[in-house]
Each structure stands twice: as structure tokens, then as C-alpha cells.
């Protein structure tokens, strides 16, 4: 029950923002003369947007998780500074720059955006994974080894089992960032909730800008709420 309650505020915010993105509401608020973006097409864009976000954040999460495990193993500890630095650089580069630079290489469409999301999403998951694995009490790890768990069993049954809630927290941060960032993909020609924003800016139609922005934020909060409800509550 507790874990469902944790997601409620984000869920309510998502709902409010979704209402704001509805054509009638946005048009009434902005008092625009030009037509708003139809609700059905906005919903299509939202689905594309969500799919593109997941396509970027899932490999990023996987990579962050694997890197986090590798740099906390006895054999991989030397890689830790390099991995930290690489993840920090990847996050320091604005996604819009990655998208712009990736278009000549990958062409228009999903690929440049996925690349940007991947680079952007690794660090939160890597940080969370390393932090969570390092927080496992050393005596618990020693006990696991001493009673005869193999290194792989120590990792799966003890370390990851204990680290999991924190890793999911990192994944949640990465997902929310990804959903918000995916709007940039519209510049590379991907159909996302950024599309109405781009069109609105080009045609000076503030209603479209508001709709796109509100819908993107609504989706980000929805993702946040869903993952909050999926993660077991810690006490």
C-alpha cells in the first residue's frame, strides 16, 4: 500500500499537466487565434515519445548497471575513475548538441536521439549502482563468501538483491530525464511531443508550444509515478 501512495503526487501532477495539454484548455488559456494540436494526434505522439524514451533509456540503464557492477569487482576497480569521468562527460554534453552532431552520421529519425538519451542516461544509473553496491555491509558480503556462495551468487543473491531499490531509483531518474530530453528529438525529425513545440515556435503559435511542453512534462511525471510504485518502499 505504502509504495502506491508514494507515486500519488507525481500521478496527480501528470494528470493536471495532461489536462493542460488538451486542445480546448490550451487554446482557451493562450487565447490563440490559430488552431490547437488535435488530441488524437497528440496521443499518437505521446506513444512514439514514450517508445523512443524507452529505446534510449533501456540500453543506458543496462550499460550503467553493467559498468557499475564491473567497477566494483576486485578485477575492475582500476576502471572506476575512467568510468566515472566518461559518464560525467557524457552527461555534461547538452543532448541538443549530441543530436545536432549525430544527424550527419546517422541521418534524421530516431538514431541521433537514442544516442543522446543513452549518453545522458548512463551516469545516474552508474552512480546509483556503484553507491548501492558499496553500501552493502562488508560483513554481509564476507558471510556470504564464508558460507560458500560463489562470486556470482554473492553478486546476485546478496549484493544486487540489497542494492536493487537504489538501482531502481537511479533508473527512475534516468527515465524521467530521458522522457524530458526526448522532446529534443523533434529537431532531428523524430515524431515526439517536441514536434508541436517546434511547429509552434516556427509559426509563432504559443498554443502548440504549451501543449507540447505540458504533454512532455505529463509523460515525465507519469513515468516517475509508475517507477515509484514499482520500487518497494524502503524504511
Amino acid at each position: 500500500m505504502k509504495r502506491f501512495r508514494r507515486g500519488v503526487p507525481a500521478l496527480l501532477l501528470a494528470l493536471g499537466l495532461a489536462v493542460l495539454a488538451m486542445p480546448e484548455v490550451a487554446a482557451w488559456l493562450m487565447g490563440g487565434t490559430q488552431g490547437p494540436y488535435p488530441a488524437a494526434r497528440l496521443l499518437d505522439l505521446a506513444l512514439d515519445h514514450a517508445a523512443l524514451s524507452l529505446a534510449g533509456v533501456l540500453p543506458a540503464g543496462l550499460l550503467g548497471l553493467v559498468l557499475g557492477v564491473v567497477v566494483t569487482r576486485p578485477g575492475g576497480r582500476g576502471l572506476r575513475p575512467a568510468a566515472d569521468a566518461a559518464a560525467a562527460v557524457a552527461q555534461a554534453v547538452p543532448p541538443i548538441v549530441v543530436v545536432a552532431l549525430a544527424v550527419p552520421a546517422f541521418g534524421f529519425g530516431w538514431a541521433p536521439t537514442i544516442l543522446a538519451l543513452m549518453l545522458y542516461g548512463i551516469m545516474p544509473v552508474l552512480r546509483a549502482t556503484v553507491g548501492a553496491l558499496e553500501a552493502v555491509p562488508p560483513e554481509t558480503r564476507l558471510a556470504a563468501e564464508a558460507v560458500g556462495l560463489s562470486p556470482r551468487q554473492v553478486l546476485q543473491e546478496v549484493e544486487l538483491a540489497l542494492a536493487w531499490p537504489l538501482v531502481l531509483d537511479g533508473l527512475r531518474v534516468a527515465l524521467v530525464l530521458a522522457v524530458a530530453t526526448t522532446a529534443v528529438g523533434a529537431l532531428a525529425g523524430a515524431a515526439t511531443l517536441g514536434t508541436p513545440i517546434v511547429i509552434g515556435l516556427q509559426n509563432q503559435n504559443q498554443v502548440l508550444v504549451l501543449q507540447g511542453a505540458a504533454a512532455t512534462a505529463a509523460l515525465a511525471f507519469l513515468a516517475d509515478a509508475l517507477l515509484l510504485m514499482a520500487v518497494p518502499a524502503r524504511d
Binding site: L142, A143, L149, V158
Partner: peptide, 20 residues
Amino acid sequence: APALRRSIGYAMQSVGLFPH
């Protein structure tokens, strides 16, 4: 090592029970 350790009981000061 894992097989050897499973054949020998081990109890420690900090107990080291698996908290989960």
C-alpha cells in the same frame, strides 16, 4: 573454494545474517 566452504560451518562476530 565454494564447495570447501559449504562443508565447513562458519559463525562470525557481526553475525552477518542476510538482512533481506
